[in-house]
């Protein structure tokens, strides 16, 4: 598979979940594992620019596809505006749900650059944050949307 722009090839057990492959085999531990039932969304990554729950995806299914994780959000040391928004608006506390939230947020803004509050809440509704109460996550995404409208930047996946 291609992960954050790098081609990687590994022999794996067929049953390996994508989340464990990314974390344990590839050492990219920014993607987290928070539940057994596809409810929490701490594991969200992109497969071919589509956010998916990597705990519900077999690693083998991602073979030959482009996978992007939180580690691939930054470009040349410059944070993505979504990452910047989360810092500016206190969109994270423990930071455990944050990578998944940001991957979903980035995908939302790529499709809908000016989402309403309701659209943002719906986009992240498959994910749980136990710390922030969501208002500051919504603000973080609004911050990023506004920033991108003011200063258009290249935001698509590399």
């Amino acid at each position: 598979m291609n992960i954050n722009g790098d081609e990687v090839t590994r022999d794996i057990e067929p049953r390996t979940l994508l989340v464990h492959h990314i974390r344990d085999n590839l050492g990219l531990t920014g993607t987290h594992w928070g539940c057994d039932t596809s409810n929490c969304g701490t594991c969200v990554v992109w497969v071919d620019e589509e956010p998916v729950k990597s705990c519900t995806t077999l690693a083998a299914m991602a073979g030959g596809h482009d996978v992007r994780t939180v580690e691939g959000m930054e470009t040349d040391g410059v944070l993505d505006t979504v990452q910047e928004g989360f810092i500016q608006c206190h969109g994270l506390q423990c930071g455990f749900c944050t990578p998944g939230m940001m991957m979903t947020a980035r995908a939302l803004l790529d499709r809908n650059p000016d989402p309403t509050e309701a659209e943002i809440r719906e986009a992240i509704s498959g994910q749980i944050c136990r710390c922030t109460g969501y208002s500051t996550i919504v603000r973080s995404i609004q911050w990023a949307a506004k920033k991108e409208q003011e200063t258009p930047v290249e935001v698509s996946a590399s």
Binding site: E71, E74, L92
Partner: peptide, 13 residues
């Protein structure tokens, strides 16, 4: 935050 938003926090797992 700078480490956590980059996915560079170090959690137990």
């Amino acid at each position: 935050d700078p480490r956590l938003v980059r996915g560079l926090g170090q959690f137990c797992d």
